[in-house]
Design a protein around this nucleic acid. Structure first.
Length: 270
DNA sequence: ACTATTTCCTGGATGC
DNA sequence: TGCATCCAGGAAATAG
């Protein structure tokens, strides 16, 4: 399940492979499940464009597009991988795998393919893409603290809210809360300044470590080159229900908050 | 203005 | 072995 570190890894890999390429043609499956854009809009915006580069915004992969040989971006192609989405760069000879919903043929003969078995992913186009929320790795401590002011929702839910912080998903929310020593059910507004500062540092540390390790490969995540990440080996609570806490040996607990599994150590987190 | 709940989707795991 | 059921989760939609 791609969150910020996985999407960052994928976007970097894609940029390395397809930056500068022209888009020759686009094929969209029957139900590409576009977010805000119709199939017609996607085809219209992508045609005759060149990919300037690929970057990550929150959990979105953003392809910056220029007209013809131009150097200024005039539109963006935005891909959200959802739960099971994959964006792969491959040669035209490779047989398309099941659940391929979009194929973009590039000038070099290579192709970008969007594959998504569970269909939670979304494709869209925009001419002025702006995401809600702030980037957790760019935000200042003061702004970070202000995000949670007056919020009665559990801190876990607040971390998952993409309109506040963008890019943090279930794994990194749990791992950050563990490292900050904060229970997931605590009301966001009840956290002290000191606790929020710990959380701020924990979020940034966890995300940076995960990016350095190529993300977490749970279920079937692989990056743009088909490589697995290694941060799952550093998970301290996520997916470890019943197993001993790596700090104090207390069994890790799991509860459901906002419909999401939340893992924490009842002893280390207060 | 917030917050909580439901919905979408399918592969894999579990249970009988 | 095979079939039914449950579960995972991001974010939009809906309800409160």
């Amino acid at each position: 399940m791609p969150e910020l570190p996985e999407v960052e890894t994928i976007a970097r890999g894609l940029s390395r492979r397809v930056a500068g390429e022209t888009i020759d043609s686009v094929w969209l499956g029957e139900k590409p499940e576009p977010l805000k854009s119709s199939s017609e809009e996607i085809l219209e915006v992508l045609s005759n464009k060149r990919i300037l580069g690929v970057r990550r915004v929150g959990k979105h992969i953003v392809f910056d597009l220029a007209q013809g040989r131009g150097r200024t971006p005039v539109a963006q192609w935005i891909v959200h991988l959802g739960m099971s989405g994959r964006m792969m760069a491959c040669t035209a000879e490779e047989a398309p795998v099941k659940h391929t919903h979009a194929i973009v043929k590039l000038g070099s003969g290579r192709e970008l393919r969007f594959v998504d078995p569970r269909r939670f992913g979304r494709l869209s186009v925009s001419r002025h893409f702006e995401a809600a929320g702030v980037e957790p790795l760019d935000v200042s401590l003061e702004i970070f603290i202000s995000l949670f002011r007056g919020r009665k929702t559990p801190i876990k839910s607040a971390l998952l809210n993409q309109k506040l912080l963008r890019g943090v998903g279930n794994i990194y929310a749990d791992e950050s809360l563990f490292r900050a020593g904060i229970r997931p059910r605590r009301r966001a507004a009840s956290l002290s300044r000191k606790e929020l500062q710990k959380l701020y540092r924990a979020v940034q540390k966890v995300l940076k470590e995960a990016i350095a390790l190529g993300g977490s490969s749970v279920s079937d995540y692989v990056d743009a080159d088909g490589e697995e990440g290694f941060f799952q080996l550093r998970h301290r609570v996520y997916g470890r229900e019943g197993e001993p806490c790596l700090k104090c040996r207390t069994p890790v607990k799991r509860l459901v908050i906002a419909g999401r599994s939340s893992h924490y150590c009842p002893n280390c987190q207060r």
